[in-house]
Design a protein around this nucleic acid. Structure first.
Length: 740
DNA sequence: CAGCAATCTCTTTTT
DNA sequence: GAGATTGCTG
C-alpha cells in the first residue's frame, strides 16, 4: 500500500504546532470547523511515522462513525498500519478492555450490555417488587440518579452512606438491588462499562501497569463532553507516559444532561500544570455572517471564556429567518425552498440538512417530504434496534448467549403467546428463589413443569428446548444468521406476523428481514471474532449516526445533538420558539439555558453557506395546540445579518417575547399552500400570561410560564417551577397565578 | 390465559 | 398523538 508522505504545509501554524507537539499533556481548544479532525489524524499519522507502534495509540471519539472516519483518514496517511490503532468510543474501548482483562475484578468475559430500555425495565420491576410504585419515584428519575452516581464513581454502598432525604434513600435501596440484579444476570449497563474499567485500573495492579505501559499516546476527542468517570479513565491510562492529548470546545458542550461536565476541561490544566494549550480559532467551514451570528447567540452565556472565530471565506449570504403559522407550514416552506434550489440546479438534495430540537419535530417535515417526493435520510427517532420486533429477537439471542440474562428472558418468555402468563411467571420465580437457581433453570426443571396445565407445560417445553438447541448451535459455531432464522421460525414469531395481514405486521416482517441482512453481513466479515457475543456487543453500542452516509443525495434530517461534528452547505434550523428551543424543561434553569444556547451555536455553525431559521406561531405539542413566542436566540442575532425568508411572514420590528397577538395570524403576501391541514379560524382568546413571564403560585412559589392554552372558558397555564417541583399544568381559575 | 378496548402518561437531547 | 399499561370479557 502506497503511503502519502506526511505534509504539514497545508496546516496553519497553530495546527502544525498541535501536530508536532512532542509529548506531555496537550490541550487543543478547537473551535467549530477549525480543522480539528485533520489535526488529530495528522498527529496520529506523525506518531506512527516516527515509530510509535499503532497498537500503542489509544484514540477515543464520541461516536463510532467519527472513529471510523478518523481511521480511514489515517489510513490514507500511513496505510494498513492504521488498522491496529485502538480507536473507538469510550464505551466500546471499555467493553474491549473488560473482555480482555475484566476477570481481574471478577467480570465474566461473556457479559452482555444492557441498554437504557433494559435498565428501565429492571428499575420498573424493582420498584414494583418493593411496592414503591409511587408517583414521586419515577423509574426514569431513579435511573438518572443511579447513572449520575455511577458517573461520579459511587457504588451502591458509597451512595447509600451519603444518601439523605426520601428520594435519595429510596434510590439507594433500589441502586443496591439494581446492581445485584445486573451482577446476577452477568450484565453491565452503559455506565458500568466506564465505572468498571476505572475500577479495573485502580484495583488490579498488574492490569493497570500493563495498560499504562502499553499506551504510549492517548488522545481524547470531544473532551468538553466528558464526564468524571471518562476523565478519570483517560488520566489513569495515560498516567505513565503522560502523553495525553485532549481536544474540545467549551462552546460546544451539549451533553450536560448526560453527566458531561465542561468544568473538567478547566480541571485538566489544574491537574496537568505543565500542559501545553493550543487554541484553533480559524474556521474553515462557514461564512462570516454565519459565524458572527452564532457567536452573537453564544456570547450571552455568563460562564464562558470568550473566543471569537474568524474566517477568510467572506461575508456570505444573509441569514434567512421565517415566521410561519404552524409546523406544517414550516415543513412546506422548507420543501419549497429546497425544491426551488434543486430545480434551478444550484443545489443537490444532499446539500441540505434539517435540524430540530426534538425528534418529534421530524414528523411534519417527513410527511411533507414524502408527499412532495423529496429524497431524504432521517436519523434518530426510533432507532432500528429499538423496534419491538428487533428487540424481541435480540432478547432471544442474548438469552441464548447468556442464560442468566433475566431481563431478556422476561421480555420473550411469553412472546409469542405460549400460555405462560403472570400467574405462571410468579410460580417460576418462587421455584427459582426457593432453589437458588436462575429463572431459565427453573423452567427447565421437568418435575416442576408437571405443576402447570397442559398448555403452559408445552409452552415451557417449547421455549426451553428452543433455547437449548440454539445454545448447541452457538457451541458448534454455527453462523449467527442461521441461529436467528431458527429462532424466528421455531418460536412462532414469523408465523404470528404472517397470519396478521395488517400493514404494521408487514413492516415488522420487513424489519426482521433487515435484521437477517445485518447478521448475514456480520457473518461475512473478514475479522476475527464472529461469535454471537461479538455480534450482540456491536448491537448494544451502535448508534444510528454511525450509519449515516454523508455523500448520499438526500436531505438529512436529525436532531441538533446528532448534528455535532457534521457540516452541510445549507442548514435549516426549525422550531425557534420559546418552550421548543430553548426547550421548556430548560427555561427554569440558567445552566440549562446556557446549554440550550450552546446547542444553538452548534446548530448554526453546521452551516457552510446558508442558514435558515424558522419559528411557528402555533405548534402542536403532545397533540395539542400551543402558542409559543419566538425564541430568544433569534433576537440575539444582529438585525443586519437577517433577511426575511421568501414565502413567510415576519413581524417587523420583531415581536418581543412578551407580546403574542393572535391578529398576527395573517397569511401574508406569499400564499402558503398547506395541503396537510386545513386552517381553522382561531378563537379570539387572550392568554392571561405571556410565555416567559414570571408568575407566583401560593404553594409552588415563583415560576416561569411555558405555555398558555384555552380550555373551555378557562386557561390552562403551564409553568416551570425551580427544583423538584418542575413543570406544572395549572388551571388559572383554580391556581390563581399572579404576575410578578 | 388471550385479546381487545379504554385509559393513562409522557416525550430533550444519546453512548 | 403515540406508546405502553391496565381492565374487562370470552
Amino acid at each position: 500500500m502506497s503511503v502519502v508522505p506526511l505534509d504539514v504545509s497545508t496546516l496553519n501554524p497553530r495546527q502544525s504546532e498541535a501536530v508536532l507537539h512532542p509529548g506531555g499533556p496537550l490541550m487543543i481548544v478547537a473551535g467549530a470547523g477549525s480543522g480539528k479532525t485533520k489535526v488529530i489524524t495528522t498527529r496520529i499519522a506523525r506518531l506512527i511515522n516516527e515509530g510509535c507502534p499503532p497498537y500503542r495509540i489509544l484514540a477515543v471519539t464520541f461516536t463510532n462513525k467519527a472513529a471510523k472516519e478518523m481511521r480511514e483518514r489515517i489510513e490514507h496517511l500511513v496505510g494498513d498500519r492504521a488498522k491496529d490503532i485502538w480507536m473507538g468510543t469510550f464505551h466500546s474501548v471499555c467493553a474491549r478492555l473488560l473482555r480482555m482483562d475484566g476477570a481481574a475484578i471478577g467480570i465474566d468475559r461473556n457479559f452482555v450490555v444492557y441498554d437504557d430500555g433494559d435498565q428501565l425495565t429492571l428499575v420498573r420491576d424493582l420498584l414494583k417488587a418493593k411496592g414503591m410504585d409511587d408517583k414521586s419515584l419515577q423509574p426514569r428519575g431513579v435511573l438518572a440518579e443511579i447513572s449520575r452516581a455511577k458517573e461520579k464513581l459511587m457504588g451502591p454502598e458509597k451512595y447509600s452512606e451519603n444518601a439523605s432525604g426520601f428520594f435519595e434513600r429510596a434510590v439507594a435501596s433500589i441502586y443496591k438491588d439494581y446492581q445485584a440484579r445486573l451482577n446476577a444476570a452477568n450484565a453491565l449497563d452503559f455506565d458500568d462499562l466506564l465505572f468498571k474499567s476505572v475500577r479495573l485500573l485502580e484495583q488490579a495492579d498488574a492490569v493497570r501497569e500493563k495498560l499504562q505501559e502499553k499506551f504510549l499516546h492517548v488522545l481524547v476527542d470531544e473532551y468538553q463532553d466528558v464526564n468524571f468517570s471518562q476523565y478519570r479513565l483517560a488520566d489513569l491510562i495515560a498516567a505513565k507516559h503522560r502523553n495525553l492529548t485532549v481536544v474540545g470546545d467549551d462552546d460546544q458542550s451539549i451533553y450536560g444532561w448526560r453527566g458531561a461536565d465542561v468544568g473538567l476541561m478547566m480541571r485538566f490544566s489544574i491537574d496537568h500544570p505543565d500542559a501545553t494549550l493550543i487554541t484553533l480559532d480559524q474556521n474553515y467551514r462557514s461564512t462570516e455572517r454565519i459565524l458572527n451570528a452564532a457567536h452573537a447567540v453564544v456570547r450571552h452565556n455568563r460562564s464562558r471564556n470568550d473566543k471569537q472565530l474568524w474566517t477568510d471565506k467572506g461575508a456570505g449570504a444573509l441569514i434567512s429567518i421565517g415566521e410561519v403559522g404552524t409546523e406544517n407550514e414550516e415543513a412546506i416552506v422548507v420543501v419549497n425552498t429546497i425544491q426551488r434550489e434543486v430545480r434551478t440546479g444550484r443545489r443537490n438534495y444532499g446539500d441540505f440538512s434539517v435540524l430540530y430540537r426534538t425528534n418529534a419535530q421530524s414528523r411534519a417535515v417527513e410527511e411533507a417530504f414524502l408527499t412532495r417526493s423529496v429524497p431524504h435520510i432521517l436519523l434518530g427517532g426510533q432507532r432500528f434496534y429499538d423496534r419491538k420486533e428487533i428487540k424481541d429477537m435480540i432478547a432471544y439471542l442474548r438469552l441464548v448467549w447468556n442464560p442468566l440474562d433475566e431481563v431478556s428472558l422476561r421480555r420473550i418468555i411469553n412472546v409469542p403467546a405460549r400460555a405462560i402468563g403472570p400467574g405462571a411467571i410468579t410460580k417460576i420465580e418462587e421455584h427459582a428463589n426457593k432453589n437458588a437457581i436462575s429463572l431459565l433453570r427453573a423452567m427447565q426443571d421437568s418435575a416442576f413443569q408437571q405443576e402447570f396445565n397442559k398448555k403452559t407445560q408445552s409452552g415451557l417445553k417449547g421455549l426451553t428446548a428452543l433455547i437449548e438447541d440454539a445454545q448447541m448451535m452457538v457451541a458448534a459455531e454455527v453462523p449467527v444468521t442461521k441461529i436467528l432464522r431458527e429462532i424466528m421460525q421455531r418460536s412462532g414469531y414469523l408465523d404470528e406476523l404472517r397470519a396478521d395481514r395488517t400493514e404494521e405486521a408487514q413492516s415488522r416482517l420487513e424489519n426482521l428481514q433487515e435484521l437477517v441482512n445485518v447478521t448475514a453481513q456480520f457473518d461475512a466479515r473478514q475479522e476475527e471474532d464472529k461469535s454471537l457475543g461479538a455480534f450482540l456487543e456491536g448491537v448494544a453500542l451502535i448508534s444510528d449516526i454511525d450509519g449515516l452516509k454523508d455523500d448520499a443525495d438526500g436531505v438529512k434530517l436529525m436532531t441538533l445533538h446528532s448534528s455535532k461534528g457534521l457540516e452541510f452547505p445549507v442548514v435549516f434550523l426549525l422550531g425557534l420558539e420559546e418552550g421548543v428551543f430553548p426547550h421548556s424543561r430548560a427555561l427554569g434553569s440558567d445552566s440549562e439555558l446556557e446549554e440550550e444556547r450552546r446547542l444553538c451555536y452548534v446548530g448554526m455553525t453546521r452551516a457552510q453557506e446558508e442558514l435558515y431559521l424558522t419559528y411557528a406561531r402555533r405548534r402542536s405539542q403532545y397533540g395539542q395546540a400551543n402558542f409559543n413566542a419566538r425564541s430568544r436566540f433569534i433576537d440575539d442575532i444582529p438585525r443586519e445579518y437577517i433577511d426575511q425568508m421568501v414565502g413567510t411572514t415576519m413581524e417587523t420590528p420583531p415581536i418581543n417575547r412578551t407580546g403574542m397577538r393572535l391578529e398576527q395570524m395573517r397569511t401574508g403576501e406569499y400564499a402558503i399552500t398547506d395541503t396537510t391541514s386545513a386552517e381553522k379560524p382561531k378563537p379570539s382568546w387572550t392568554p392571561p400570561f405571556n410565555v416567559g413571564q414570571k408568575v407566583t403560585h401560593k404553594k409552588f412559589g415563583i415560576g416561569i410560564v411555558v405555555a398558555c392554552n384555552p380550555v373551555k372558558g378557562d386557561a390552562e397555564v403551564t409553568v416551570a417551577f425551580p427544583g423538584a417541583v418542575g413543570i406544572k399544568k395549572l388551571m388559572q381559575s383554580f391556581a390563581k397565578l399572579e404576575a410578578v
